[in-house]
Nucleic acid binder design. Structure first.
Length: 504
RNA sequence: GACCCCAUCGUCUAGAGGCCUAGGACACCAGCCUUUCACGUUGGUAACACGGGUUCGAAUCCCGUUGGGGUCGCCA
């Protein structure tokens, strides 16, 4: 096990009291924690990104700081507005609110270029005129010789007069060749790499646009980000970014690199590997609070606690208890957590969530009476469902008379027997005459009836359940009867009997 | 290939040298509860990757092996 990082490191302000202005004259005090989530809008918000966002959000909220959003759209070819909206929607659905306006990275390209030019002017960067072919060649020979596959620095010290005409150069960082670069990571501890392993990275492309390495550093610095929480896959990038911070004489933020989430098969969870966007989980009927709880426990722990409310998470979250090994995504556990939060949710809220789903499958609007039955039905239904989708399916019979499935038909078979049918009729007519058609009254009647006739309660309940709900599984049948009301019960029972006779 | 990271039940994890005969949760199995299905509840199966050290004592510290993952773009 790793040694724990020194307590309190990194959450202190870098330059207390200093103010920066950014975007729409938004002043940010530096004496607080500022985290950010910086997705690239080339697709939906996937599960790994969602967890990174959650951790960053939690960390900021925990320390009373700010959580900011930056859209890294400098790849003009692959960035889409649709993806930007999906990210916004995903975060909103998850309940991760960000402070201030989202920063669109591309809008800051001029600032990024300015930094590159400054580095150039200070002799900390240089122009490189290599062609793509040359670079490919370079990588090949490096690999063949067992060296790191990087740029060999051939333009590092060449005179400007040697520049070929008509070839637009890129600007590369003049990275240190000796020594090592160190990252004091809040999750991974100290990680270092020999500078000889790192090449002179491109800061500004030939077309004058900044590379990712440059823009993240400049933006994180300008946005006064104090804590960069991101995926493990950025750990080795961090060495390079460190070199830019050093070259600019800037204090780097603290970093926390959290392990990646893998698919159920242990392979990397990526978009081309079937990873889904958070909206897919929303559509599968998961609740955002269940998702938050699940994602939180994927990599972070608080002793043996499993069910952790967002409020608790905000007051408990820290980087010390983030694990360092990758986790697999397990839909089953998400489901069980979801079932828990479903049981916890209010009937009104659930009815509201489920109504559109039922309306869609019915192809019509729900009447006020149907909607009311739906709400009343939630109590018994919600502890039997794992997702909103299941809940909607199981609630359908409150809106529309069910078709009897095969099992239901079979469950009603006993009523084909004359004596049994008469007994059932006797019970039902007594029930319909009840002054109050409620679950307790009907149940008392049923128990009474079964005692008198020597029938088992189940012999009465199962055929009724089948007739009224169309299924052999449902909430307690007397509760269902109360919610349905005497009239509907009568109608449904009569037509169910008819259906059974016809089917036989 | 080079560099970096990781390694406890099937899965998520607890574990900061003796509290470990390794704990919890999900899943699974069995019992109880019961008008069905669930819920709830009781119990059960199930793990320290391997090999060397250090130490009176190692899941825990060190080294190596193996296995997994990540990064090496004028993508982010």
């Amino acid at each position: 096990m790793r040694s724990k990082p020194p307590q309190g490191r990194g959450i202190l302000p870098r330059q207390p009291g200093r103010l920066w202005t950014l975007g729409r004259n938004r002043s940010i005090s530096m004496s607080q924690v500022i985290t950010r989530f910086a997705p690239s809008p080339t697709g939906y918000l996937h599960i790994g990104g969602a967890r990174t966002a959650l951790f960053s959000w939690l960390f900021a909220r925990r320390h009373g700081g700010q959580f900011r959003l930056r859209i890294e759209d400098t790849d003009r070819a692959r960035s889409t507005e649709d993806a930007v909206n999906k990210i916004f929607e995903g975060l909103k659905w998850l309940g991760l609110d960000w402070d201030g306006d989202a920063v669109m990275q591309f809008s800051r390209a001029a600032r990024h270029a300015e930094v590159a030019r400054q580095l150039l002017a200070e002799g900390k960067a240089y122009r490189c005129y290599c062609s793509q072919e040359e670079l490919a060649q370079m990588r090949e020979t490096a690999k063949a010789e067992g060296r790191p596959m990087g740029y060999d620095g051939r333009w590092r010290d060449r005179d400007a007069s040697e520049a070929p005409s008509g070839v637009p150069p890129v600007i590369r960082l003049k990275a240190p060749k000796d020594g090592e670069t160190l990252v004091a990571d809040l999750v991974q501890d100290e990680v270092k790499v020999a500078n000889s392993q790192l090449d002179d990275m491109v800061l500004l492309r030939a077309d004058g646009t900044p590379t990712y390495m440059l823009s993240v550093v400049v933006d994180d610095h300008d946005m006064n980000v104090t804590h960069v929480i991101r995926g493990d896959d950025h750990l080795t990038n961090t060495f390079r970014q460190m070199q830019i911070y050093n070259a600019m004489g800037w204090t780097a933020p603290s970093f926390g690199h959290i392990p990646l989430i893998h698919g159920p098969d242990g392979a990397k969870l990526s978009k081309r590997h079937g990873a889904l966007g958070v909206e897919a989980y929303r559509d599968m009927g998961f609740l955002p609070e269940a998702m938050r709880n699940y994602l939180l426990r994927l990599g972070w722990s608080h002793g043996d606690d499993e069910i952790i409310s967002t409020e608790q998470a905000v007051s408990w979250f820290n980087l010390e208890n983030v694990g360092r090994s990758p986790a697999r995504f397990d839909l089953t556990k998400l489901s069980s957590l979801n079932a828990h939060y479903l049981r916890q949710a209010s009937d009104a809220r659930l009815a509201m969530e489920v109504a559109p789903l039922i309306e869609k499958s019915l192809g019509r609007q729900l009447s006020p009476e149907e909607a009311e039955r739906l709400t009343k039905g939630m109590e018994g239904l919600k502890e039997r469902a794992k997702t909103l989708v299941e809940l909607a399916e199981s609630a359908r019979f409150y809106a529309e008379s069910p078709n009897l499935d095969a099992k239901a038909l079979k469950a009603m078979q006993p009523l084909l027997d004359n004596d049994r049918a008469l007994q059932m009729d006797a019970f039902l007519s007594k029930a319909y005459d009840l002054p109050s058609f409620d679950r307790a009254g009907i149940e008392a009647l049923a128990r009474n009836h079964s005692e008198e006739t020597g029938m088992k309660l189940g012999d009465l309940a199962q055929p009724l359940r089948a007739a009224l709900t169309g299924s052999t599984t449902s909430p307690p049948i007397f509760e269902v009867m109360e919610i349905l009301g005497a009239n509907l019960c009568q109608n449904r029972f009569v037509s169910a009997i008819k259906a059974v006779r016809e089917a036989t």
